[in-house]
């Protein structure tokens, strides 16, 4: 049996400062949001920015620290496995975050909206909303004064379909890049990986234009009732994850360029690739259940 060393880092300042940054971020966000209605969120904004700035610095520093340790060969294969377990369970937690929103979507579609429209076991509820009829996507809400509904919803067979194609191909390109990394074909990595980043950016661009269309032309907004609410929370958090994923791809690309990875030691690379596949799978779910059905 080989004697390996599990690296237990000595003291570290990153965690406590990261906690302070997180606190500033959260307190700032709370104050800012609470001040929205009264236009008194300025201190909140300040705190939020301070927290965000501090957090970015810390994350950069912390990751650099860990990368350097890795380059110094401090992480044994066992430590590498710890990172892998860590990343996998983190992705699982992210999946569960989306499960909450998908659950909400299925619930309102199959139960709440039909009940309000007078169907099913609690159909008497329709007494309170006379004239309301259940339909999905919900364009006419029970109370059009409070939640004015939408004129139309996004057509799945245009931008969303293209976006699906884009994300699925990006899953392939990153896999090709990964293979290239293992085979030490540098130019191929750079090409396939670069293509993945470009696809991610195009996806985000389309998503943004879809939002603009929704708000400006379709009247599909956060306030337009439950369809808009579920639509934006699902696509919005997905979009945030794509943004984060793209950032990670860019960083990892730079690391590829700097020659940080070897064919048998590139956990950082794989972690980002996993994350990207996760974002992709969530999108397929979204495409099917938010847009198509």
């Amino acid at each position: 049996m080989s004697h390996e060393t599990y690296y237990v880092p000595a003291q570290s300042r990153w965690p406590i400062f990261a906690s302070i940054a997180l606190f500033l971020l959260a307190y700032g966000a709370g104050t800012l949001i609470n001040g929205l209605k009264t236009q008194t969120g300025d201190t909140g904004l300040l705190l939020l920015l301070a927290g965000a700035f501090m957090m970015s610095l810390i994350l950069i520093g912390w990751f650099r620290h860990v990368i350097n340790e890795g380059m110094d060969g401090k992480f044994s294969p066992q430590a590498d496995l710890s990172f892998r377990w860590g990343m996998s369970w983190f992705i699982f937690s992210e999946i569960m975050f989306f499960v909450a929103f998908f659950g909400a979507l299925f619930y309102v579609r199959t139960l709440a909206v039909p009940w309000l429209g007078g169907e099913g076991e609690k159909g008497v509820s329709n007494m309170l909303w006379q004239g309301f009829e259940a339909q999905w996507p919900l364009l006419t809400t029970p109370d059009m004064e409070q939640f004015p509904g939408a004129r139309a919803v996004i057509d799945p067979w245009h931008l969303p379909l293209i976006n699906t194609a884009i994300l699925i191909s990006s899953s392939f390109t990153i896999t090709l890049a990964h293979h290239a990394l293992k085979a030490e074909r540098r130019s191929a990595i750079i090409l396939w990986h670069g293509l993945t980043v470009v696809l991610g950016v195009i996806f985000l661009f389309f998503q943004a234009s879809e939002y603009i269309e929704a708000y400006q032309e379709l009247g599909l907004t956060l306030e337009s009732g439950i369809y808009g609410a579920t639509f934006f929370i699902l696509t919005g958090f997905h979009g945030l994850h794509v943004t984060l994923g793209t950032l990670m791809l860019i960083i990892i690309w730079i690391r590829v360029l700097k020659g940080h990875f070897t064919p048998d030691s590139h956990f950082g690379y794989e972690a980002v690739a996993w994350y990207w596949h996760f974002v992709d799978v969530v999108w397929v779910g979204l495409f099917l259940f938010v847009y198509v059905f």
Binding site: V108, A112, P142, D143, Q146, F147, I226
Partner: peptide, 18 residues
């Protein structure tokens, strides 16, 4: 609370029981 959605409000098609 802050961004006008109606997850838990029947007036917009949501449900407090959700």
């Amino acid at each position: 609370i802050h961004f006008g959605t109606s997850f838990f409000n029947a007036a917009g098609g949501g449900d407090p029981v959700l």
